[in-house]
Design a protein around this nucleic acid. Structure first.
Length: 954
RNA sequence: GCCGGGAUGGAGGAAUGGCAGACUCGGACGCCUCAAAAGCGUCUGCCCGAAAGGGCGUGCGGGUUCGAAUCCCGCUCCCGGCACCA
C-alpha cells in the first residue's frame, strides 16, 4: 500500500467503485442463472425456473409503460417508474408470488424516420442502435426483467401479430343487440338470409354493393375524414403538430383541412363499455374522470322541428323538411325560440329559400338573399382553423337562413340560424336554442335580439342571465310546476307519443383516425382489387414486411396547393405495391395499402405479447393469458396487476389499448375484459434550468448558488423549473449517477425522494444521503479494513429487536401501498439504531442483519445479494421469504405517554405496556408538573387514549 | 368557465383526529487528519431568553372537538385536464 493510499478510505468501504464491481458481478450471475425467468403454464417458456412456486404461487403481472428508444437515451426521470415496479416485483417474489416483470420498446415512431429522411440511414438501424443503448442502460440499473420476453414493436415477429389483430378488428362488426363484436361473416349471413334488412334487398344488390354495405359495418373501415393536410411536407398531421396560425410546426408550411380517404377504427361502438367498465378497474379516480370526460356520454333527447311552410320557395318533403336537434334539456323545449345549425349541416342547402321572407328584421339581412349570406358564412367558418374557432370563443356570430321551423310543443314559428358555435360533429349538428336556460344561447339571442322565455323558475336571489339550475317549470304548459328531472321524463313521453322525438344518448368520442403517411410504421394487411375495394390479406400471408426503399420521405408539393393528394413513401415501392396474388379465387392483380398504422398500434396490445413473446402459432396462448391476466375476485375484469406510467397517457394510449382488448375479448381470444387491472401514475422528476442575460440556457451543473442568488461563471442567471431536456442543458443521466454512486444508491435515492406519484425536482447533491445509508448498512456487517464479516450469533438487545419487528411490519405495509419513501426511511432508522448500538462492539447480531438485508433487497438488490452471500447463503435471495414480524415484539414493554393539560404537553409518564386506562390516568395526574396545574383540584375531564396520549382538562 | 389535485422548516418530504416537522439534503460546530476530501458525532421551525423556561407555528378566515396539518363551511394562490359538446 503506497504512502498516499494509506490515508485513503478503508480498503473495503462501500464506495462507488466497490458498488460497481458488486453490481456487475450480480448482474452477470442473474443473467447466467436466468434468475428472473418466469415460467409460463404452457408453451416454449414453460421450463421451470429457480425459486418458482409450481404448486400454488399466486401469479402477479407487474409492468411499466414501455419507452420509445430515443437517440437521447434515458435521463434520471425515466427510470423512476421502472424502479418502482422493480421494487414491487422483487418484494412480491419474496412473498411467494409468481411474478412476471417484463420490459420492451415502443420503437416505431417519427424521430427515427426523420433522422432517416435527413441522413439516409435506415430507421431500422437507428432504432436497433438506440434499443441496444437502452438495454445497456437498463441492465446497469439491475432490473429483474425476464430478458426472454423483451420485445420491440418494430420486430417483424411482433408486428405480424399487430397486423393479425388489425384483421380481427377489420373482420368484426358490432352487434348492438348483443352488445359485442362478432365475426363479419355472421353479418353477411344475416343480410343474405333476410334476418337483417338493408335499404335494398340483399339479392338485388350487385356484389360490389354488397361488399360496400358489409365494409360500412366493419370495426376498421375506410372513410372520407377531414384531416390536416400539409402539401409542403407531403403528409397529414396530428392536431398537435399544427400551430395556432394554421401552419405546420415543422417547416412552417400551410395546413389545410381536407377530406381524405383514411382508415378509421370504430371505437365509438365501445363508448358505453369503455365508460362503464372503468368501475371494474383499480385506477386513479382522476384518470377515470378524464376518460369519462373524453368519452363524454350525455343523455337527452332528439326533437324534430318541421320546417315551416310558406317562406321557402323550394318545397321539401319529409324527411328533409325536418331538422332533428339533440338536447340534454328537453324539458325546456317551450323556451326554444330559435334553432341553430352548424355551418356544415347537410340540410342547410335544402332549407335556404331563394329570397328573404317578409317581415325579416333588417339587421338579419346580411346579404341580398339568404343563400349568399349563408354561403359567405360557411366560407368564413371553413377558413377558420379549430384553434381560431376556439380563440374567438364566446363571441357569437351567425346568419339567419331565411327559414323558419315549427316548435312541436306549441306550434310557434321559430327562425333557423346558422352559427359556428354549434359543432357539426356532435349530436345532430343542430340545436334548439333556449336562451332562458343556456348561457351560449342567451349571448346569441342578445346579438340578434331574439325573444327569451324562461321555462324554469330561477331560485331566489338569482341575478344572472340564463338560469341552468333546478327549479319548477314555468311557461311550459303541461310541464308547469315539475322539477327538471320529472319534466324531462314527461316531455320525452310526450315526444314519443306524438312522434316528435325520442330519448337518446350522445358521445363526444369520435372514431379513431388510424392511418398515417409514414414509412416507419406497421404496413396494413390490406390489398385493393381492380375495383379499388379493400380486401384483407389472408392470415397465412402475414407478415406484410416493410419493403426496403431508398427515400423515406413522402412526396411533397407546392406548399400552397391544397388540391394535392398525399403519396406515402411506400407508394413508390412499385414492386412491393403492385402484386399478383392468389387469394383462393385464382391469381389476380392487387395494389397494397401504402399508409401505415399510427404509433399507438404497437402499444395497444404489448402486455399480451409479453405473456407469450415467442409463440409463432398464436398472438398469445389462451392458457398463458388465463394464468397471468385472467379475472379473479379481486380483479373482476382481469388484466395486469400493476401498470405504472405517466399521466400523459391518461386518455389516448389507455383508451385505445382498452378498445383493442375488448374487441379481442368479444372475439373469444381473451378471458380478461380489461388490459390493466390496476394503474398507477408515477410523478415526473423535474429539474431547474438556468438562462443568462440574453436568455440562452447555461449548463445547470455549472451554476452555483449563494444566499439565494444563482450565478454561472460569475454572471447572474435566471432560474426556471420544468422538464429535463438536452436543449435546457439540465439533463442528468442514470449512467452518471451509477458511475458516481452505483446503481443501488441511485435506486434507493429515487425511491426515497417522496411518494411515487408526486412530481419533484431532481437534486444530485442529495444522492449522497442514500450512499451514506448503504455504507452504514455495509459497515454493520462487514469490517471496512479487512473485508471480513463482522456478525455474531449472539442475541440482539431488546430495543433493537423490537424496532426490527416494528420495521418489518411497517415496511410490509408501505411496500404493499407503494409508499417506497416511508419504507426507505424506516430501513434507515433501523440501520441507524443498529449502527449506534453495534458499531463500537465487535460484531452485529445475525438475527438483525439478515432480516435487514432481506428488507433492503428490493431497493438495493446487488448490495443485498452480496451481503447475503457473505452471510453464508449460496442461493440468491430473490426467492427467499421476506421477513415476518413477530406480533409479540411489535409493542414496547413500557409505553411513554405525553400528558396534555388543556391541549398542551406538560409532562411525560412511562408505564408498563399492559397498564389499564385507570392506572395510566392515575399516573398522569400524579406527574409533578401535571399535579401543579391541577393545584389539588379534580380535573374536569381525563381522557386516556391507549398507546397514544393522556389529556387532562382543568 | 367547468372538472380534478395540491399548499407543512432554507429544499425534498413525514404524520389522515392524539407529542407537527420522521427520514434525507443543506447549514453550524466538533472529532479524525500536517491538510483537504471521505467518514463519524452534536445541534439545526420561528420569536424572547445566558440558561431554565415561555410564546407562536402546517396558505387565509371561521366552525366542530378534551384535542385539528388531518373533519366541516367560506376564501386565496399554485399545478394538471377539458374548454361554445347543446
Amino acid at each position: 500500500m503506497s504512502e498516499q493510499n494509506s490515508t485513503d478510505a478503508p480498503a473495503h468501504r462501500y464506495t462507488a467503485a466497490l458498488a460497481a464491481s458488486i453490481e456487475e458481478r450480480w448482474q452477470d450471475r442473474w443473467e447466467a442463472d436466468g434468475t428472473f425467468h418466469s415460467p409460463n403454464p404452457s408453451g416454449p417458456l414453460a421450463a421451470p425456473s429457480p425459486g418458482w412456486h409450481n404448486d400454488g404461487g399466486t401469479p402477479m403481472f407487474v409492468m411499466d409503460m414501455f419507452p420509445y428508444p430515443s437517440g437521447a437515451g434515458l435521463h434520471v426521470g425515466h427510470p423512476l417508474g421502472y424502479i418502482g415496479t422493480d421494487v414491487y416485483a422483487r418484494y412480491h417474489r419474496m412473498l411467494g408470488y409468481n411474478v412476471l416483470h417484463p420490459m420492451g420498446f415502443d420503437s416505431f415512431g417519427l424521430p427515427a424516420e426523420q433522422y432517416a429522411v435527413q441522413t439516409g440511414t435506415h430507421p431500422r438501424k437507428t432504432t436497433d442502435e438506440n434499443i441496444d443503448r437502452y438495454k445497456a442502460q437498463l441492465r446497469r440499473l439491475g432490473f429483474g426483467h425476464d430478458s426472454r420476453r423483451l420485445l420491440a414493436t418494430t420486430d417483424v415477429s411482433y408486428y405480424r401479430w399487430t397486423q393479425w389483430i388489425f384483421l380481427q378488428i377489420y373482420n368484426s362488426w358490432y352487434d348492438v343487440e348483443t352488445g359485442r363484436a362478432r365475426p363479419i361473416e355472421e353479418l353477411e349471413a344475416q343480410f343474405a338470409s333476410g334476418a337483417r334488412r338493408a335499404a335494398t334487398p340483399w339479392d338485388q344488390m350487385s356484389r360490389t354493393e354488397q361488399r360496400k354495405l358489409i365494409d360500412s359495418h366493419r370495426l376498421a373501415y375506410l372513410s372520407e375524414a377531414p384531416v390536416n393536410w400539409c402539401p409542403g411536407l407531403g403528409t397529414v398531421l396530428a392536431n398537435e403538430e399544427v400551430t395556432a396560425d394554421g401552419r405546420s410546426e415543422r417547416g412552417n408550411f400551410p395546413v389545410f383541412k381536407r377530406r381524405l380517404r383514411q382508415w378509421m377504427m370504430r371505437i365509438t361502438a365501445y363508448a358505453d363499455r369503455l365508460a362503464d367498465d372503468l368501475d371494474q378497474v383499480d385506477w386513479p379516480e382522476s384518470i377515470k374522470v378524464m376518460q369519462r370526460n373524453w368519452i363524454g356520454r350525455s343523455t337527452g333527447a332528439y326533437i324534430d322541428f318541421a320546417i315551416a311552410d310558406g317562406a321557402p320557395k323550394k318545397r321539401h318533403s319529409a324527411p328533409n323538411a325536418t331538422i332533428r336537434v339533440f338536447t340534454t334539456r328537453p324539458d325546456t323545449v317551450f323556451g326554444a325560440t330559435y334553432l341553430v345549425v352548424a355551418p356544415e349541416h347537410p340540410l342547410l342547402d335544402a332549407i335556404v329559400p331563394d329570397e328573404w321572407p317578409a317581415d325579416v328584421p333588417p339587421a338579419w339581412k346580411t346579404a341580398d338573399d339568404p343563400s349568399t349570406a349563408v354561403a359567405a358564412y360557411q366560407a368564413q367558418a371553413a377558413a377558420k382553423s379549430d384553434i381560431e374557432r376556439s380563440a374567438d370563443a364566446r363571441k357569437k356570430t351567425g346568419v339567419f337562413t331565411g327559414s323558419y321551423a315549427v316548435n312541436p310543443v306549441n306550434g310557434a314559428k321559430v327562425p333557423v340560424f346558422v352559427a359556428d358555435y354549434v359543432l357539426t360533429g356532435y349530436g345532430t349538428g343542430a340545436i334548439m336554442a333556449v336562451p332562458g336556460q343556456d348561457e351560449r344561447d342567451w349571448e346569441f339571442a342578445e346579438v340578434f335580439d331574439l325573444p327569451i322565455v324562461r321555462t324554469v323558475q330561477p331560485s331566489e336571489g338569482f341575478d344572472g342571465k340564463a338560469f341552468t339550475g333546478d327549479g319548477p317549470a314555468i311557461n311550459s304548459g303541461f310541464l308547469d310546476g315539475l322539477g327538471v328531472a320529472e319534466a324531462k321524463k314527461r316531455i320525452i313521453d310526450w315526444l314519443v307519443e306524438n312522434d316528435h322525438g325520442e330519448a337518446t344518448t350522445t358521445y363526444k368520442l369520435r372514431d379513431w383516425l388510424f392511418s398515417r403517411q409514414r414509412y416507419w410504421g406497421e404496413p396494413f394487411p390490406v390489398l385493393y382489387d381492380e375495383d379499388g375495394l379493400p380486401v384483407a390479406v389472408p392470415e397465412s400471408m402475414l407478415p406484410i414486411v416493410l419493403p426496403e426503399i431508398d427515400d423515406y420521405s413522402p412526396r411533397t408539393f407546392d406548399p400552397d396547393d391544397a388540391d394535392t393528394d398525399p403519396e406515402p413513401p411506400l407508394a413508390r415501392a412499385d414492386e412491393w405495391v403492385n402484386v399478383t396474388l392468389d387469394l383462393g379465387d385464382g391469381p389476380k392483380q392487387y395494389r397494397r395499402e401504402t399508409n401505415t398504422m399510427p404509433q399507438w398500434a404497437g402499444s395497444c396490445w404489448y402486455e399480451l405479447r409479453y405473456l407469450d413473446p415467442t409463440d409463432e402459432g398464436e398472438f398469445v396462448d389462451p392458457a398463458n393469458e388465463q394464468y397471468w391476466m385472467g379475472p379473479t375476485a379481486a380483479k373482476p375484469a382481469g388484466g395486469v396487476d400493476l401498470y405504472i406510467g405517466g399521466v400523459e397517457h391518461a386518455v389516448l394510449h389507455l383508451l385505445y389499448a382498452r378498445f383493442w382488448h375488448k374487441v379481442l375479448f368479444d372475439r373469444g381470444h381473451l378471458r380478461s375484459s380489461e388490459p390493466f387491472g390496476r394503474l398507477y401514475n408515477q410523478g415526473y422528476i423535474q429539474a431547474y434550468a438556468y438562462t443568462d442575460a440574453r436568455g440562452a440556457y447555461v449548463p445547470a451543473d455549472e451554476v452555483v448558488e449563494q444566499d439565494g442568488v444563482y450565478t454561472w461563471h460569475g454572471q447572474p442567471v435566471n432560474r426556471e423549473y420544468g422538464k429535463m431536456g438536452k436543449s435546457l442543458k439540465n439533463v442528468v443521466t442514470p449512467d452518471e449517477m451509477c458511475a458516481e454512486y452505483g446503481a443501488d444508491t441511485f435506486r434507493v435515492y429515487e425511491m426515497s425522494m417522496g411518494p411515487l406519484d408526486v412530481s419533484r425536482p431532481w437534486e444530485t447533491r442529495a444522492v449522497v444521503g442514500s450512499m451514506r445509508f448503504l455504507q452504514r448498512l455495509w459497515r454493520t456487517a462487514v469490517d471496512e479494513e479487512t473485508g471480513d464479516l463482522r456478525v455474531t450469533d449472539d442475541e440482539a438487545d431488546d430495543a433493537t429487536k423490537r424496532l426490527l419487528h416494528r420495521t418489518i411490519d411497517g415496511v410490509r405495509g408501505d411496500l404493499e401501498g407503494l409508499r417506497t419513501n416511508t419504507a426507505v426511511s424506516k430501513l434507515i432508522e433501523l440501520t441507524n439504531q443498529v449502527t449506534s448500538t453495534y458499531s463500537a462492539k465487535a460484531a452485529t447480531p445475525r438475527e438483525v442483519v439478515e432480516p435487514l438485508v432481506l428488507m433492503v433487497a428490493p431497493f438495493a438488490p446487488h448490495l443485498a445479494e452480496e451481503l447475503w452471500a457473505k452471510l453464508g447463503h449460496e442461493e440468491t435471495l430473490t426467492y427467499h421469504q421476506f421477513p415476518v414480524a413477530d406480533p409479540a415484539l411489535l409493542t414496547a414493554a413500557e409505553i411513554e405517554y405525553p400528558v396534555q393539560v388543556n391541549g398542551k404537553v406538560r409532562g411525560r409518564i412511562t408505564v408498563p405496556a399492559d397498564a389499564d386506562q385507570a392506572a395510566v390516568g392515575a399516573a398522569a395526574l400524579a406527574e409533578p408538573k401535571v399535579a401543579a396545574f391541577l393545584g389539588g383540584k379534580e380535573p374536569r375531564k381525563l381522557i386516556v387514549v391507549p398507546g397514544r396520549i393522556v389529556t387532562v382538562v382543568v
